[in-house]
């Protein structure tokens, strides 16, 4: 089978999947209401409300310990929450295991430490979930994986192992791996924080391109250049609350909250 027929078969399959569900455009991509979470006695999320429309790009920033990673990890069920609701595309997360699994399948996650599977080749990293979760045939899965590896500009590394790649390449593989599952929402948890400065650019370029393709993205990042260029909205968190939420132009030129001002000034100097 040629790779283009495999791709068409893939597209048909995903179109059929989405037809079975209600029209996604009627719902917001993400709707968070009064979300609370505790780690033991530590109140890490204190009543988060956040709405994310389909196709929008949200950058979440804030000092460490502000709860931004916890928030994004709640969005695909990696962390359980105590109070409040999270709706992903109209499906309530955490209501029951089947719904959560479905919601999770529509969400791709990119981690700070890449979390590639070191015992599998780049290609196998990308095809593992396609074959075991989506039940796709090998050739079909590999065609799709090659497609996304090309998208992140490392098709030539498909048969190498993660340890043989640079950090930037590994993170791009991680992005391709997440994209393979055709997510409607991509979550990025500080995707460039573990990278050397010269590798940050190549990862941000891939993310920017993804944003231009219309992917709904929520990124926890301190890359303010990326936020300025790509984000529809910047969310600033501090001590478990969202203290400021604004379009980048406003956020960077005239942050209203003193803690946001303080945070920006420490980033710039």
């Amino acid at each position: 089978m040629s790779s283009s027929t495999a791709m068409t078969a893939m597209n048909l399959r995903f179109q059929k999947d989405s037809l079975c569900m209600q029209d996604p455009r009627q719902n917001l991509a993400v709707e968070i209401d009064a979300l609370h979470k505790w780690y033991g006695a530590f109140h890490v999320l204190k009543g988060i409300d956040l709405r994310v429309a389909h196709g929008s790009r949200i950058v979440i920033c804030g000092p460490s310990g502000s709860g931004k990673s916890t928030l994004i990890r709640c969005l695909n069920g990696l962390e359980a929450y105590r109070q409040g609701t999270i709706m992903l595309d109209g499906t309530r997360l955490g209501e029951d295991a089947v719904q959560t699994a479905l919601a999770r399948r529509q969400t791709g996650m990119v981690f700070q430490n890449f979390n590639l599977f070191p015992h599998l080749s780049v290609l196998a990293n990308c095809t593992l979930a396609l074959r075991r979760v989506a039940g796709m045939a090998r050739t079909e899965a590999e065609a799709l994986a090659h497609h996304y590896l090309e998208k992140v500009r490392i098709p030539e590394q498909a048969h190498k192992y993660p340890a043989q790649l640079s950090g930037g390449q590994q993170q791009r593989v991680a992005i391709a791996r997440a994209l393979c599952m055709s997510p409607r929402l991509m979550l990025f948890d500080e995707p460039t924080s573990a990278l050397d400065p010269e590798m940050i650019r190549e990862v941000l370029d891939v993310m920017t391109e993804l944003a231009h393709d219309g992917m709904t993205m929520i990124c926890v990042t301190h890359e303010m250049g990326f936020a300025r260029e790509v984000a529809d909205e910047v969310v600033f968190m501090d001590q478990g609350s969202i203290v400021e939420q604004a379009v980048p132009a406003t956020f960077f030129s005239a942050p209203s909250h003193p803690r946001a001002r303080n945070f920006l000034s420490t980033l710039l100097h």
Binding site: N76, L78, R104, N115, V133
Partner: peptide, 30 residues
């Protein structure tokens, strides 16, 4: 094993059994 290995499997939608058999055990046994 790094906790991130299991989390990456979960984020991809793999079942607990698949995470154990395809991700955790191969690395642990090696």
């Amino acid at each position: 094993l790094d906790r991130g290995q299991k989390e990456a499997g979960q984020a991809l939608g793999l079942s607990r059994a698949a995470i154990l058999l395809l991700i955790e055990l191969p690395q642990a046994l090696r």
